[in-house]
Design a protein around this nucleic acid. Structure first.
Lengths: 345, 345
DNA sequence: TTGAAAGCGCTAACAT
DNA sequence: ATGTTAGCGCTTTCAA
């Protein structure tokens, strides 16, 4: 450990070219070198070129730490997501990162695995790096200690996927989207529809989608949409699923709160010897690309993660720049996949 | 913009509790407060508690920028991957992040979309943040300007997925794994095997896998394994695929360099009216979880991304600590999926 | 066990 | 158009 520290010091001494050495070599003041990087227009072209020549010669790059400490901006954003294993969040990362890079920002990412305890620790680890803002998906925006902390610290943030009227966010209209899916299932002749999800306390998206599904069920005069809670957000509870299938008023369509769950449900149903969609229609939510390659292809609601990430990042950058915090709604689209088909008697 | 800058200043003034204010409030020197955070054992318990009380009262967290600038360590690692849309890389992120968090490190991630031009720019954006080390997947480690830069700067790094004898890396043995898949296909009765991939120049994994496949083909006395190059690493070239299928010595098995490509190939074959595996066996590489849910399930080689990420991060942390750079091999496992079945005549 | 003082690399006022 | 100076928040000798 001591040894390691020594090595580190040795290493960093090598790269001890600071703005000062560049200034001396170019025969100018450090301030001028700084200007060359930050306000090149203020420097006479000749001087600028002389400085840049020296800079190139040394392979010099200004140390952001010094700059950040002095000027207060780190050009770094934080991204806090439940997981990247779910492609919809991976896409969100890509959208956010692409937008951030366009404005010269880098992104520090962390995942919470839907664990509110981890959420807090992870966010603190990020905040300590003095990020300029945060994009995050929380369990529940109405009761999130983290959001309170951020507000108190005056740290700009935008929610992604979470919908909220009291916080800036980038999301799809989950209620309406879920309602549309129910309408779709009803058109296919389904009346007994069950909604499957993980614990609602850990995902307000699941809650909104369930609410939208139930509301639309009522509006269409269907029997109440039942709700099956599985411990995990991505894996169905085998026993519960079996009970559901054995019930007398067994549903003819399962609407799953996300595509990973829907995919796993289809797998389980097959394992139970049932055929999708002949014995049971299944629909998901998110529109992950793999859904299209499955057979039958997955019926779902496409909520483009890339656009959510990109929008959230744009909103965040505006907020950092102006202090104006707005929300944005991202469009969705029903995917008419083969996993949800006309009901057979 | 000016307005925005003012707002920013107003915001940051609020959080102007520095170690100095804490020191004054606790009646100690700033050095002591610093010790409470970094070497608590050196501080008398009573003093420590007094300081911690004040710290808690103010919700104070030390500014890492100051600390990093002074001490030289940012507790931040960089991660450079081709894309996170491919679940195998998303898993890699999760493995690396989990390991990093265990040691108090945060991760800055960027994606290159297999574009060597982007690669360089992205890495420079990261380096400027004075990361302590980098985990990266490059197009070709033997001829990568970035790796040269890193070496020159003395920045610790570990390759993920890339195999190399001259750079530290965490990867599976791609040649052997591909050879094993060819053996598997041969056992199923296939003799004419084609290998599909994107441009080899952009992925040394594809190159190693092709080499392993060809070598094993020869060893088993099969006809030469042909190679079909598609412009994208994840999407097959429809026309080329059609030509391949129409050829007189048409292969009976397609070995794709990764699962995303394999998935898309299966989709295309279906679109051509062909049945997998009856008309054509298809195998992939990576072992993404969705493969198990497809029907037929995807034959593949599982190379756990999570483990690759985790291993790479462990190796990197050792390197940062000791200066000792080692490589690690991650095990793989053949997945006997239904998409590759016994050859029918 | 604690404090005083210097300075990490940079930029922003202010001065010229 | 450029230089001078001070200091961002912290840690690290060195001294007491």
């Amino acid at each position: 450990m001591t040894n390691g520290a020594n090595l580190n010091r040795a290493r960093s001494q090598k790269s001890q070219v600071s703005i000062l050495e560049i200034a001396q070599a170019a025969g100018v003041s450090p301030a001028t070198v700084s200007r060359v990087f930050n306000r090149p227009a203020l420097v006479r072209e000749e001087t600028r070129e002389r400085v840049l020549a020296i800079v190139a010669e040394h392979g010099f790059r200004p140390n952001r730490l010094g700059s950040s400490l002095r000027s207060g901006n780190t050009r770094t954003l934080g991204l806090v997501l439940p997981t990247l294993s779910n492609p919809v969040f991976a896409d969100c990362f890509e959208g956010a990162e692409a937008r951030a890079a366009e404005s010269g920002y880098s992104i520090m990412t962390t995942v919470t695995h839907y664990d509110p305890g981890l959420e807090a620790a992870a966010v603190h680890r990020l905040i300590d790096h003095r990020l300029e803002g945060l994009i995050l998906t929380v369990a529940n925006p109405n009761n999130s200690p983290i959001l309170k902390t951020l507000k108190k610290r005056g740290m700009p943030y935008v929610l992604a996927y979470n919908e909220s009227s009291s916080h800036p966010c980038a999301a799809v209209d989950n209620r309406r989207a879920a309602a549309d899916m129910v309408t779709h299932l009803a058109r296919l002749g389904h009346r007994q529809i069950a909604f499957l999800s993980g614990p609602l306390a850990l995902s307000d998206r699941a809650r909104s989608r369930l609410a939208g599904a139930r509301q639309q069920g009522r509006a269409l005069g269907l029997p109440p949409v039942s709700h099956l809670v599985t411990p995990s957000h991505t894996q169905p509870d085998r026993a519960a699923l079996r009970r559901l299938m054995a019930a007398s008023n067994r549903p003819s369509a399962l609407f799953c709160s996300n595509d990973m769950l829907a995919t796993a449900v289809i797998g389980e149903l097959k394992a139970l010897g049932l055929c999708v969609p002949a014995d049971m229609s299944v629909a998901g939510f998110d529109g992950i690309r793999y859904g299209a390659y499955m057979s039958p292809s997955l019926a779902s609601v496409e909520a483009q993660g890339y656009e959510i990430g990109r929008t959230a990042c744009s909103l965040l950058l505006v907020q950092i720049d102006n202090g104006v915090s707005r929300s944005g709604q991202v469009p969705y689209r029903l995917i008419d996949g083969g996993s949800a088909a006309a009901k057979r008697s």
